[in-house]
């Protein structure tokens, strides 16, 4: 266990170092930021999907909730940015608690209900009647605190945090009990695992990570519309990234996001007109031929994937 932990820490450290120094040699910071964002989100999704089997199709709801909670903290309470980022995470966590009853549902039912919840949240935030609070359809402008470098490194901290959370879950008894629940929740509860509590913790952590990421995104872009941070595409992209790498590990979502987001930008730049077509074909091929993600190739050879 200890050895595995150290190995995983090594990966986290390498990733952190890469993203600290990469901006000095490669200056498309937005690309690097988005890369970190998608890795963090894929890891966050991994917490709930990889370890409990609940597919949060409306994961973007937490992302948007985080972006808006942080922005409102900045605009109305005049909190400093870092505190506001935390408020973003807390706001998403709160939404997670409100949506806790959804965990009663299983499989596709949960996925759909979660999707509906994220859309409902979007329509509430974007509603013109709430303009005095959320700015309604006008969107948010955080121009006064715009700071791409500070927000870049804050995003890096969130990324590291998300990976540490996954590391902790993967190598702790808590993680084992989650996997036991995923396998068979009745047997697990007979064996003394508090099923409801374990699921709730994973759910809350997952929401928290998405909220922090959303808050960083808000700070980084500084001007956004409700449709930007509640776009269903974010959910879908993150799910595809996590699956591509392989869920239930730290390395899976990381590798998935690194490869696919690079690929995504590569087609966007080199073959823009076939962007969507190639992406769709890639997803289909992936599901048909590599349903457990690319890290499963190693796992099948009995190689441990952190």
């Amino acid at each position: 266990m200890l050895k595995k932990r150290i190995g995983s820490f090594g990966i986290i450290l390498i990733i952190a170092l890469i993203f600290i120094f990469l901006p000095f040699v490669y200056n498309n910071q937005s690309f690097l930021f988005n890369m970190m964002l998608y890795i963090a989100l894929a890891e966050g999704l991994n917490i709930i999907y990889g370890f409990t089997g609940y597919l949060p199709f409306g994961y973007v709801g937490f992302f948007g909730a985080g972006a808006y909670s942080a922005s409102l903290a900045i605009l109305f309470l005049h909190f400093p940015p870092l505190l506001s980022i935390f408020i973003g995470g807390a706001g998403a966590f709160l939404v997670g608690i409100i949506l806790m009853p959804l965990l009663k549902l299983s499989g596709a039912y949960f996925a759909i209900a979660n999707l509906a919840a994220s859309q409902a949240l979007y329509y509430i935030v974007a509603n013109p009647n709430l303009e005095s609070i959320t700015h309604g359809p006008y969107g948010i402008s955080l121009a006064s605190i715009y700071n791409p470098h500070a927000s870049y490194y804050t995003m890096l901290a969130v990324l590291v945090l998300s990976m540490i959370i996954v590391l902790f879950i993967r190598t702790s008894n808590f993680g084992l009990s989650l996997l036991a629940i995923k396998e068979d929740h009745i047997t697990a509860s007979l064996a003394g695992v508090n099923v409801a509590k374990a699921r709730a913790i994973a759910w809350g952590l997952s929401a928290f990570v998405a909220g922090l990421s959303g808050a960083c995104f808000a700070w980084y872009v500084s001007v956004f519309y409700p449709g930007t941070v509640f776009s269903l595409n974010i959910s879908v992209i993150v799910i595809v990234f996590a699956l591509f790498g392989g869920i239930g590990t730290i390395a899976g979502p990381l590798v998935g996001a690194l490869i696919l987001y690079s690929f995504y930008n590569f087609i966007g730049i080199s073959a823009p007109e076939y962007f969507q077509l190639l992406y769709g074909i890639l997803i289909i091929v992936l599901v048909l031929f590599l349903p457990d993600g690319i890290t499963s190739i190693l796992q099948k050879r009995k190689i441990y994937v952190p």
Binding site: N28, Q29, S30, F31, N34, F224, Y225, I234, G268
Partner: peptide, 10 residues
């Protein structure tokens, strides 16, 4: 918009 940000930066 997220893609657009990266592309503008590019």
């Amino acid at each position: 918009t997220a893609t657009a940000a990266a592309m503008y930066n590019q």
